[in-house]
Design a protein around this nucleic acid. Structure first.
Lengths: 293, 293
DNA sequence: CGGGCAGTTGATCCCCATCAATAGTAGTGG
DNA sequence: CCACTACTATTGATGGGGATCAACTGCCCG
């Protein structure tokens, strides 16, 4: 894997190569930052090129300066799962094992800064606050992974798309801004949400027709304008990263109340669209979602 | 949602004497074990009772002495995701946050030993080896969560069941033994695999008819006898916790090789049932997996 | 201008959810 | 011990959500 090729450097909105130390905010004292010098220079990785591959020795960990990275897991028949998208300032590669267990690939031309994992471990051994920071980092990753498990196992296509748009909005847009850039392609989104590219397209089409969003295509992916954030939130059904109100236990908490679903999970029509065609264009189903705002 | 009603609170968490220290194997030196005195006595938790609920302050973490625990995440319309099953000697509740972000419930009557999280954190601050052990623990959790994401997003029902049986066999049966006890009910398995109880039943029925397994029901769940481990491995398609042989990158690694699927994901008939005439079992693919042992 | 690719849209199919009914099995009380 | 209850597992029938197959469109780049 001779990735990390340094080629065209002025195509995207990349920052200038500027090495900087890794700064780890410690949970006990957010102002105190432990620093670690980067190993080598800033790396520029071309679109779709791997930064490291699954199984490779985990010598380095990385921080994104600009661009976007996907973490990929695949089985040999070609099926693929994108476990995560990483954006500027995100850290990755802290796998704590001898070998990386995911492949990291650049979604668009991406600049990363890398650090020696061993040096970071040594720093953590010396400074308990750094160690706590790393644990907290892992805990965040676990929480997010659990949310994604809920999403993949128990939600509909529309809920997944809506959740995804909300997640990207929260992470990649300036507050108050109603536009999000989606640097990744439909296939990446599909493999992230456990769907197909066609389903992604159809769901986005639905949202477009209902006036919830607009989309435009640029050089580096899609730009989504969100017109009705509330509708998106309704479609996402629940913030999947944190559960609902009631602290109900399993199915057996109270045998008297037979657990009536507030929102039946299915039966909303295929992505909310009308089925029997021929007559007028009735978009009445959409109103159901909009009315709940 | 007035769940967690204190109706049967006297049944939950009976106290029993049998303290034992928490022993953390450090990755650098597996023989050296850091010890932490348990907080209080051993707890006995009744079937289906919570040990702690999502959102509760995370004061303690736990180790299972006997029984089985499920980690549950749910959204308010009743949909549920079981993120993990925990068995004797497993640790849980190390959430690294102020509040637990999952609910822990006993699957069958279960004894747990609990420890003060703060004490463990303090121990980790004092002893870097313990801190490493905790990080390694979190890393294992992350790896497992990613495998589950792959399973939930990109596999068929039969592959999930087969994977589940293999996982439980690896964890909960003595080596060389061909029997596994499944303490959890079908609904728990379904919520773990992102399926329904009916699908679980049907898949198990298929495996039974094909002679791959046998099932029997006892007081504490199901007991599965595995007759054809190789067939199960074939059905599981790939060990989902670690990927296949090739370190291929994404869809675009090599435009010359159009990524031919070895095993078409679908089109095997409903749960692998016979489609055309059923003759002998051609299990040649199995050898690939067995050879890696 | 044309080849190639990602995105989009349409038609069809099928895996699995859903609804419904039956068969075990544990628990209880007589 | 056996009815009776309550639940869980199982099996069957049916339908739908999303995958799959197949064009087609629009944009980029040579």
């Amino acid at each position: 894997m001779q990735s990390l090729s340094c080629s065209a450097s002025n195509k995207t909105a990349l920052e200038r190569p500027r090495p900087s130390p890794l700064r780890i905010a410690t949970p006990t004292d957010p102002d105190r930052l432990a620093s670690l010098a980067p190993a080598g220079r800033t790396l520029l990785v071309d679109k779709d090129q791997p930064i490291y591959a699954e199984g490779e020795p985990a010598t380095f960990c990385y921080r994104i300066l600009g661009g976007c990275v996907r973490m990929v897991k695949l089985i040999d028949d070609g099926r693929r799962q994108v476990t995560e998208f990483l954006l500027p300032d995100d850290l990755f590669g802290l796998d704590m094992f001898d070998a990386h267990d995911l492949t990291a690939e650049a979604v668009i031309p991406t600049t990363v800064c890398r650090y020696r994992r061993a040096a970071l471990e040594a720093l953590a051994d010396r400074d308990p606050a750094v160690a706590r920071g790393l644990r907290s980092f892992a805990a965040h990753g676990l929480r997010k992974a659990r949310g994604q498990m809920m999403l993949l196992g128990r939600t509909t296509a529309m809920e997944r798309i809506a959740s995804f748009l909300l997640e990207m909005t929260a992470r990649a847009s300036r507050p108050g801004q109603d536009q999000v850039a989606l640097p990744m392609g439909r296939a990446d989104i599909a493999d992230y949400l456990g769907l197909t590219t066609e389903t992604i397209c159809r769901a986005l089409g639905c949202l477009r027709e209902s006036g919830t969003i607009d989309t435009s295509r640029g050089r580096d992916g899609t730009c989504v304008t969100i017109h009705d954030l509330a509708a998106l939130r309704t479609l996402a059904s629940a913030e999947l990263t944190r559960a609902g109100v009631g602290l109900r236990s399993g199915r057996d908490g109270d045998p008297l109340a037979p657990l009536d679903p507030l929102i039946p999970p299915r039966h909303q029509g295929w992505l909310g669209r009308e089925r029997s065609g021929g007559n007028g264009p009735p978009l009445a189903v959409t109103a159901i979602f909009l009315a709940q705002t």
